[in-house]
Design a protein around this nucleic acid. Structure first.
Lengths: 213, 213, 213, 213
DNA sequence: CATGAATGAGAGTTCATTCAT
DNA sequence: GATGAATGAACTCTCATTCAT
């Protein structure tokens, strides 16, 4: 009996926490940390202001809980994508798809991550990279495998990954500031094509640029 | 005499405005609009708080003046880059260089543009694109010329430009959130290489991805 | 059977009440009424917050219960001291000892009585004097007896008692604000000596001050 | 001109500070630190809430400013009393008078000092004793002189002073909690008489108590 | 013109009290 | 009866903006 009750209670508490986090996520995303206001969050979550403080020490803690949950979900999403293929090029394409569709599904997280690059820079950047680069390791292996198999040009791996990451985050960033008017996932094919094969058609010119250090 | 005095006065006023804008730019970039505080700005600009309000109607107006000045400078920078070559591929590379080095020189602007994608989204996005796409028109012509000369693959131009823009902004964004620890301009060569020629080495695989719609 | 159960229950309730009052006494003494916090009291008493409210209508009622219990104990203590001697001077010394050692044993009460001289002034002062002056009547009789027996100088009794009371309460007050670093009871001998015989040695000067109205 | 203006401004600022301190002193005395509320203080001082915070960092700082000013005044008062006589016994009586009439004039300070013996115990006790014991040194010398001149019985000086201090503070304390219904200064003669000559009339009994260790 | 003291709406946070379980 | 999650009034403190000097 007792166990059941306790379980029920815990579930209820978890639901309440989730409820607050969901709302907070939306509001922080829309307003940014500083402008977002606890009263509004409480009201939108249909709880009293005190309840928010019952579950989270203060506004900052609530915010970080939102961020942490988001990053945890990102990690989960990318891990699930797992190994559906052995081909390095296909892996690269799949990773792109996963990353973009995650953020398409978790719109709020974008606003939050973009917004708070200063106030919480260290905190967030650290967590972001902890979570993300756990996966980047795998990406690295993929690129390396591609090079070993002579599928991919020999280049400095970190530089390539840096371009790869920038491109993805840039796509998300632009999507966000342009008002999310299109489907992010639709960009995958053109991005893949350009990232993998470039835009040059002329063979001579391509060679020229490929040689260039 | 009078004219001279008036001129002097105007110059003084302009200097003061510039002085305030410079400081405000730095502080808005570091703190974001909401957290930045007028007292701090006034103090850092070595003027009284009232003076700030003398030159700018309110905090919002000051902020937008900072943004507008920044975007105006961006426009200027890119226009100056001008027409140093006729080759479309070189033009593309040069535009990259100009864009990245502008933001490397105007670090504050990055923080401001990134920060305020929500509160001032419409205002800023509008201005940004007005200024920027003035230039994008030229980029468009460049890409088109490249295609006409069979240097560049036939693709949807807007899509290509979207990837191009995302890549550049993504590079700047990552540079910012990673703490601006390297020279942004150093990325130009690898980015150019990948954007122009892709990462694939294997011919068969390249063909395959080039055909893919 | 029923009676036994009811008795047990009552005993339990009393134990719980005592438990809460003990903890509350300590906390009110340390923090004062306004700063003391019910959550802390409940936790320290090992009961739920609701339980505190079950036994005491509200914070104020709990506080007054603490005070009342303290004053009741003071009354008890002084009554017990009883009549161990007939000599007025010895009685005066004994009353001092009793009073000081009571507060030495009931440290919390001091903090509470000192703290709340404003918010609860009337309530507490009334109770304090009701309880205390019940005894003061006896003190009065003692002084009168002393005067009647020509042991004590003829003076206005209320004034003498007022000095007597002030001295004792002053000792307790100073002991408290100095951090209770010594044994309060150790002051009895010097206080008695001074109160009974004064500090003057020189006979002429003493006479002079004794005559002075 | 400038100097004059600056002076005027400073005077104005000082007046404003005094104005706030006066009101705060009254309210802290009546309500205690925790219950006193900044809004009320601001309103009573006829200034905006922000103004209070303009002059004092926070509630605590305001409170301590009130205390410090009070203690500073106490020091001043006692120093002024100065050396109006050379006779040790008269000095002792004069010091009493000064001390009691100071607190009679500075009623608010009593409430404040009594109230906050816990929250600010260390801070206040330290300041109080710094200021007060500056004077206690003089008291000590007076007692010592009295003993050297064989006017005062040979006793442990610190103990005597402790009784002396307790008696005075006790008088003030009782005056306060009894509602300040009489003139504090009227107690001086009876207190002096008892402190100097004791209450015993009977010679034999006096000897007995004087011998007692 | 330039200043910064003054202001009060509004923000974050606390906590006595209630009440469903 | 016992509990502690939920609540919102009330409190401290901040800061954009105004205005007398």
């Amino acid at each position: 009996m007792r166990t059941k009750d306790t379980k029920k209670k815990k579930a209820l508490i978890d639901r309440r926490k989730t409820q607050i986090l969901d709302v907070a996520s939306l509001i922080f995303s829309k307003e940014g940390f500083a402008k977002a206001n606890t009263d509004e969050i409480a009201k939108a979550a249909n709880v009293g202001k005190g309840t928010v403080y019952h579950y989270f020490k203060n506004k900052r803690a609530l915010f970080l809980a939102v961020v942490d949950r988001g990053l945890e979900q990102l990690k989960g999403a990318i891990l699930i994508e797992a190994e559906k293929t052995d081909d390095p090029l296909e892996k690269i394409e799949n990773a792109m798809k996963t990353y973009l569709s995650f953020f398409e599904k978790n719109k709020n997280l974008i606003g939050i991550l973009i917004h708070e690059q200063s106030s919480f820079q260290k905190r967030i950047a650290k967590h972001y990279f902890e979570h993300y680069y756990g996966n980047v390791d795998k990406i690295k292996q993929t690129f390396r495998a591609g090079m070993d198999q002579d599928l991919i040009k020999g280049m400095d791996i970190d530089s390539v990954i840096s371009v790869y990451t920038s491109m993805l985050n840039g796509l998300i960033f632009m999507w966000q500031i342009e008002g999310r008017k299109y489907r992010l996932i639709d960009k995958v094919s053109i991005v893949t094509k350009i990232f993998l094969t470039g835009i040059i058609k002329d063979k001579k010119r391509r060679k020229e640029y490929e040689k260039e250090k």
